[in-house]
Amino acid sequence: MNNDDVPADKPRGTSGPLLPILNQPSTRRTALKVAGAALGLAAFGQAISPLWSIPENISVDEFLQRHYKELSDDDKQRIFRRLEAETKQELGIEVTIFDPPPIPGVRFGYAINLSKCNGNGKCMEACNKENNHHRGVDQSYIRVLEMPKGSMDMEQGNTTYDHAVPQDDKFYMPVQCQQCENPPCVSACPVEATWREDDGIVVVDYNWCIGCRYCEAACPYHARRFNWEEPEIPADEVNPNQGYLSNRIRPQGTMEKCHFCLHRTREGRLPACLEACPTGARVFGDLNDPESDINWVLKNKRVFVLKEELGTRPNFFYFFDS
């Protein structure tokens, strides 16, 4: 290379052709530059080649889909049918995707009796099955902490215990989304992909979330889960009863969270984790109904909420017997 021999800076503006790069002194240098640029571009194309699979997986409709709140009923129906067809195509099974609206006048509350909970983890298992969680990591929206009696310090807790429960010197505290009245995750989301519905359930639009995980950083209860990879569920284990904002199979790279099984609870049914609890530690109901089970607990038991000092105002309560 004798680049240095070439006078690099010929006085500019002497001829003023259309493309100044052609104005440069050495055609050889220019040719090398063009070749270098072409080579660089080709290499770049090669480098990002794993991305070429994306257009196969994401249709134009999906790419251009608007935020949930901007969709008309027709749009939604079209989207639900598309998602059903995609599941049919990928897993060969029929699923129904629907979108039950909040029941007017209802505000959901949940309470757990810590005297009863024995940490057996059936709630986590039920959550995993009901909500079409990724089986590879046995994902669940619930984590159960084993805590030493005599302390409420979660620092002393342990989620990975694997022995007969309950241990005499321990108590057990399941934690899931607290469905806060003042949810920090909702404030954090830069694109309004998560919001609080009228019945108090905080939901995620899985097709709007950009996967920045700011909500996960903001949540004080470790309630949010990220789809680090494409969730895998055996076709025969898929729950075909799927809510658009709840348990439909989530796309890779998006956030998800407990939604109080809204595809069940908005139909009047109990959440899956409550039905699965063998100890009867879980109480669910309408906070606006003075006769509801949950209100009986609030009136007759001494309840507390987690991290009350943060001002998140959870709709999820804990209590002890007597």
């Binding site: 935020h67 901007e70 830069p190 694109v191 309004e192 992909a193 709007w208 950009i210 920045c212």
Partner: peptide, 20 residues
């Protein structure tokens, strides 16, 4: 590069996206 869904980057843009 930290986004799980860089294809949805446009959601962050004013007017065409939906900014919080």
């Amino acid at each position: 590069v930290d986004l799980g869904r860089p294809d949805r980057f446009w959601h962050l843009l004013p007017i065409i996206g939906r900014v919080n």
